[in-house]
Design a protein around this nucleic acid. Sequence first.
RNA 1: GCGAGGAUGGCGGAACUGGCAGACGCGCUGGAUUUAGGAUCCAGUGGGGCAACCCAUGGGGGUUCGAGUCCCCCUCCUCGCACCA
Length: 809
Amino acid sequence: MTEMTYDPKTIEPKWQKHWEESGAFAVDEEPGKEKYYLLEMLPYPSGRIHMGHVRNYTIGDVAARFRMMEGVKVLHPMGWDAFGMPAENAAIKHNVHPAQWTHENIDTMRAQLKRLGLSYDWSREFATCDPDYYRWEQLVFTKLFERGAAYKKESPINWCPTCNTVLANEQVEGGQCWRCDSQVEMRSMSQWYLRITDYAEELLADIDDKLEGWPERVRTMQREWIGKSHGANIDFAIDGSEEKIRVFTTRPDTLFGATFMSLACTHPMVRALAKANGQEEAIEAFIARTAKIDHQAWLEGSYEKDGVFTGAYCINPVTGWKMPVYAANFVLMEYGTGAVMAVPAHDQRDFEFAKKYGLDIKVVIQPDGEALDAKTMTAAWEGEGVLVESGDFTGMPNRKAIDAIAADLEKQGIGGATTTFRLKDWCISRQRYWGAPIPIIHCDACGAVAVPEADLPVVLPMDVPLTGEGGSPLAQVASFVNTACPKCGKEARRETDTMDTFVESSWYMLRYTSPKCDTGPVDSKAVRYWMPVDQYIGGIEHAVGHLIYCRYFTKILRDLGFIDIDEPVKNLMTQGMVYKDGAKMSKSKGNVVDPDEMIEKNGADTVRLFSLFAAPPEKDLEWNDKGIEGAYRFLQRVWRIVAGWMELPGDAGECEDELRMRHRTIKKVTEDIERYHFNTAIAAIMEYVNFLYTLERTDISRGAIEMLVILISPFAPHAAEELWRALGHTRSTLEEAWPVFEEKWLVSDTMTIIVQVSGKLRDRIEVPSDISEEELKAQALACEKVQAHLNGEPRKVIVVPGKLVNIVA
RNA sequence: GCGAGGAUGGCGGAACUGGCAGACGCGCUGGAUUUAGGAUCCAGUGGGGCAACCCAUGGGGGUUCGAGUCCCCCUCCUCGCACCA
């Protein structure tokens, strides 16, 4: 006999234990049977789970349980993105080892997730800080290194001169070190890169061809991030020298208006040019002050546009003019060639720069119906027009001139059409401890040598002093650094950089298919069965970072022969952020809501239901726990009607009204779950419950009651399981088939038609469903309210069958 | 600054394709029940107006028989910008 009172505290642990002991969610490949791989982005073990996690994993859990009930093999794994900076910071602050801190957090968070009743196959769990995991990305790295796809180059990093260490952007606050407030500097350091740009074309093309199941928003962001642009390379000879400066421009049509040149301050020719022209001091001062620009100001573009003359001139190849060569702080070495031909008349930034330094402005494009004059213009003209003062190209529309001038340059051997990408190679070097060691050995004789496969993994040593000062922690551990060269056997030094944690999260979805595989990163048979991920769910903030890296890694693993798929994720669903008091929930802001407290008070089913009911998954959610009472009340209503029915289980016959309502609800709930509109699916179940409450208890059929329990089961699995067993079933709700609605209960003999006059609602009429258009029109016109708003004959009558009649007065 | 989104009652949201704006829930109001409190059940609830009606989807314009939905301009908010994960 079921208790009349809903008591989640008793039933939730009971069913969680049951699922765990019966291995309810453990799956294996079953060739020939349909599979569904459902994955939520793996969490960083930061301490305790927060509402964002609850939301993310509940969304996934409903989808997983729904698919299970559709009879499909569902892979639904969970694990930990366990390397990263917070563990190292905690170690420095509290003198606890990052490994200990991480594992304690994992234990806490795992227990919290289990209290939510999530349907994970815990037998596949792993943490990315486990050597059995990261050894495989070390292997991949060595293979990429051998192919030249992993390489080292100099690049700038944030450097705190007091702590004598590298800082992440996040550790720089207002241009100062977060620990000691020293002014942060930019320093050049040799770092490891992965050649993701080799895959730029494929990553771009596959967005169109293979990611139809991704939100358009994310696809657009990725296209922009990869940033393919067409343009031309052009060589400018340096006056009085054999050397040339190559620029990339998207606007070769403005070449005749190029009056000066801007170089990135890190451009390799800047120092040499300045030295040759006696501008050394000015340039050094400029480089130093550019290095001090705050990262935040850089992002906002709120820093002062600044430049210095190098003393050198180059020659415009089409006009022969001498163009002064400047170093400018807004030119990026990472994009194009690090050199920009400046056309002040037709580029706003160049215009402002020219005004500031008194440089020539030359109009070469005249827009239709306007006459630009360099002397009077107050802003650059960046739009279209016809070329003027442009040699043989004068009179040509500028669109056409883009290709024509590029072709001409190619003929002359001084450039030509090309494409460039905004996408940069991926810097994976971190001068930090808590990460996967980069498996390279530096030998004075042999150079950088990959650690041989037999010697992998390069295990991260445990006994390392962490102070937050003095550079890379691993570099300070002699027993780690000193080793023998694998090639010549002479004394050599290990690489002390560790890998960006995005490397771990780039391939974990593949590892879940065969987490224990010890012969390679993955078992190809398991990958063939489970991959790709059918549904991936995670925050929109990963739209470009992680979600490009994991696509890239899949392509790498394919080209290394480990797998034979091109894309890891078929369908993506991006959930919105969870806010409280207008800000993203975070410990530092003190606006976190602890899910545990809420589970303790109301039960996991209530917390799950509420987090889904509050907003659709894609939308940001402003957290307000007022409404949680409503979710709890609703579950009590469900409980009472089912338990109440069981008190008087006389099986009433199924009446027509009830069957109509039942099938309408099945349709709505099923379709809404499929499109991830869980809030409206829950609303439909609420309406169904409200309907059942309008019936006499004795008029409610067993079918109506059982349908309710089944429909609620993905959302509130514990309560559903308890009620289902109480109804006399011996199997879990998960083993029941998801109900199918019958069309015949959805059609009706009559329908309501809206009657509008000039688009304004004036009346409703009830008509037979099979009414003719003529008859419908006649009935609508006959309405009293229509006549009242109509003087004379209508101009027009619009009939939308099944919906409305609009009479245009 | 660049790129991508968003804005609907007192609150969270609904309206999937241009067709009844505000489903469902919270809150509030009234009633029933109760020794009382709580819980529960029922009804009402965008604004104005006695009513007929009128006004309302961040602001302004436009397209259309008809616009929350499509187009243009503006305001505010959020996310990302490559070392937070």
